[in-house]
Write a protein that binds this DNA or RNA. Sequence first.
DNA 1: CTGAAAGCGCTAACAT
DNA 2: ATGTTAGCGCTTTCAG
Lengths: 342, 342
Amino acid sequence: MGHRPITLSDIALRLNFSIVTISKALRDHPDISPKTTKLVKSAAKEMGYTPNLMARGLSARKSHTIGVVVPKIAHFFFGSIIESIYKVAFDNNYEIILMVSQENAEIEKKHIQTLMAMKVDGIIISITQETKDYDIFETVRKRSVPLVFMDRIPEIEDINIVRVCDREGAFKAIEHAINLGYKRIAHFAGYDDINIGKLRYQGYAEAMEKYQLPIHPDWVVRGGFGDKYGYEAFMKLYNENNLPDLIFCVTYPVALGVYQAARELNIKIPDDVDVICFGNAKVQNFLNPPLSCIDQPTEQIAERSMEILLENINNPEESEKREIIVPTDLILRGTCISYNKP
Amino acid sequence: MGHRPITLSDIALRLNFSIVTISKALRDHPDISPKTTKLVKSAAKEMGYTPNLMARGLSARKSHTIGVVVPKIAHFFFGSIIESIYKVAFDNNYEIILMVSQENAEIEKKHIQTLMAMKVDGIIISITQETKDYDIFETVRKRSVPLVFMDRIPEIEDINIVRVCDREGAFKAIEHAINLGYKRIAHFAGYDDINIGKLRYQGYAEAMEKYQLPIHPDWVVRGGFGDKYGYEAFMKLYNENNLPDLIFCVTYPVALGVYQAARELNIKIPDDVDVICFGNAKVQNFLNPPLSCIDQPTEQIAERSMEILLENINNPEESEKREIIVPTDLILRGTCISYNKP
DNA sequence: CTGAAAGCGCTAACAT
DNA sequence: ATGTTAGCGCTTTCAG
């Protein structure tokens, strides 16, 4: 069965034109007369022609393909971002080559190399939590492959960045809580050697300082970004008999861990301990009580990243680097909406 | 500053070998002496050589690339499957080209065409809810591109299939509930013109019949697979004053909608109405009460799909089609674990 | 408007 | 063990 795929040459033979004419006609090149163009296109369709994108890319030195590297994918934040990136790419006639680094810096490096080997026209990346060696990004720059960092940003100079305003988002949330009447506010803070961990803590700290509230050191619990860590952190404070009135979680999985621990300990949210977190996910609506949060507009992050990348692809010269900071929104649901502590 | 990428020819020039020798050495071809191989490899590394995968693919007629098409991605089930597919691909030195059809049959068709144009070595697909026209799959077959259908299966003959045993999974869940003492069991059933909708209903119906329980027609509510539909279906039964003792939801988002409606109506789960659903997601652990479900082992689905596809890629001749049915597990958490109705 | 020539970077056959 | 020849399918000059 496996008929050899139809090529330009097949169409050329059939129509008694040269390969070049066929190639041009198919791409609506102004050289070719409308009549010929029409003829060629209909023949191509009839014969079931599909262009060979590898050949086209090799010849044209342009793959019309964008590489995207993210740490994981079965996660609401990245899942939404990726979905939006795909939409923008589709609208702009680009294909996406998605790579998943699995939070592993080695794999990440390999993926970037593969993407360059595939001759993608540009790369969007959210780095892993453990990425410390930034040489590979230097290599990318040397090869002049346009590059945009998204959300998880390394500390290097002169790069394109799209991120949420973590500091301000955290600040707004804590200020809101303080205005409600909260004073005893803890922060489950992740690590501080990654930008989101550091900046969210800063926002928290600034708000506390502005209203002259003490930051109890035991209430800034570090350790991770997942539900397990949220669970353990809550248990720790509980066992130390040191529960605060409100917990600000660095990510929503951390808040999930808090919900779980609270349920097991029969501690009521929001009455006994209230919760708010950074990061929005649809499922927060279905928790009991629905979880309030600082929303990171994934669609905007994706769109702006693609926008800058496409700009860089189309103007390889004008290489002024951009830093886009997307604003956050406070989304109030069933937590952190009133203060009713003794 | 955009140095032209290093090619085989650059290395050949430097080492005074022919291009072919370099090419072979880099791929550990037995023709080449170990000494030369070593020399070439170190030179390549030093010069920062990266192979051009488009050129290699064009020449070798093999892209070492697999196309994957799914309806969506920011969804736990597909997200997990994709993540596993990426892992298997990585271990087997294949790259994944992921396409998202957004539940749109037109886009799906375009994606499949693009994948063929990119000369992927094979395709794994989960079709959209609205895919009715199966011509494109015939085209894929004609071009002898290996193809595996995963989870969402069209009704055509002689294809590779990997899916969960929906019927049996549903049956097991309902049987479990009946053994607990449940009799008044409703089913929020999605649509029945897609395999998962039809088969899950069948499992439900068979269990009810086996234990000679009546299927109240009003209790089989059709309409969709999302949380909105779950919410509305619950509200409908409530307004009709016709709530059952247990609701079996066709997907977990439907169950989320039920949780939301119940909370708003102040109806207690599992005491007033109990719930179980098809489909597992981590977040179910964090609901109150934690939601029991029929687990679809995403890792296995992904692994088996890749396995069959790779088999087909490596033995293009032996084209006997396979149908893999992956077993489900009943995962009991905080719902559907006891019967305590009046 | 059309086409002939050259080459993108690589690999597979066939020498040597 | 190494090299020569011939493409893969397409696009980009450049001539007609």
